[in-house]
Amino acid sequence: MEFAAVTTLNALTLISILLLVGLGLAISFGLMNVTNLAHGEFVTIGAFTVYFVQSLGGSFWFGLLAAPVVGGLVGMVLEYAVIRHLYSRPMSTILATWGISLVLQQSLELAFGLGAKPVSPPVEGTVDLIVAVYPAYRLILIGIAAATLTAVILLVNRTSFGLDIRTVIQNREMAEGVGINTRRSYAIAFAFGAAIAGLAGGLVAPLAIVLPQMGVNYLANAFFVVIVGGAGSIAGLLAGSVFVGGLTSILNYQISPSLAQALVLLAAIIVVRLRPNGLLGGAFR
């Protein structure tokens, strides 16, 4: 019982992170058709923001607030300087964003030096959940992720900005025809996705090894989430996160992490073969 509960909670932690990182990718990759290979660096930037704030003596919570702001700003600059010019050239976008990813990684290394950066969680200790004892910070992480997801769903479905975004995604020309500034919508959506990834980086910082190169693992997994879940819907994103996060957590108990990664990749490839539009492809659009 306790084992099952801890496994479930571990899976939930991973699913929460994947969900937040995947959200930005679902926006750029799934909806705008932009393959942003620098997306992992938003996570890195979020984690480094928390580290930087803590190293100056600030609190974790202030760092966590700053992380999405910094991530979103970098995303905005990236969209404005590079991605905006390449919307019609998918291959160029891949190469350019990969180049940016390398530049960001190396700049962080030059600025902060080699080696892992320590980030301490805001709360120590565990919580007794009757069936199991679990680290308090991880429970907070799951809670923040759930709250963020709810906020995003409300934003997309209940506000006029969300309506604009949905219109642009469904038909860009038509959206322009009815007077929506699609350029601006794309830019805001992209920066928004980057901000959420930055938040994810800030959240994961106390649990992860904070390195300039940490982003690529999140990048690969987040792409699996979007591909497996089927690009284009929040339900698909949820399904993809549960699939990738759940499978990884369960496998991690049995076998070595890198073999688990390989098996998750294999499973993802097979899912793509069987359901090319993703687990929920087409069902919830």
Partner: peptide
Amino acid sequence: YFLFFGGIRGSYFTIVTLATGVI
């Protein structure tokens, strides 16, 4: 086999091969 016959092209293929390299 899985990718091409699953209809995967373009960016999706790039990403899956990227992940393969990482793994």
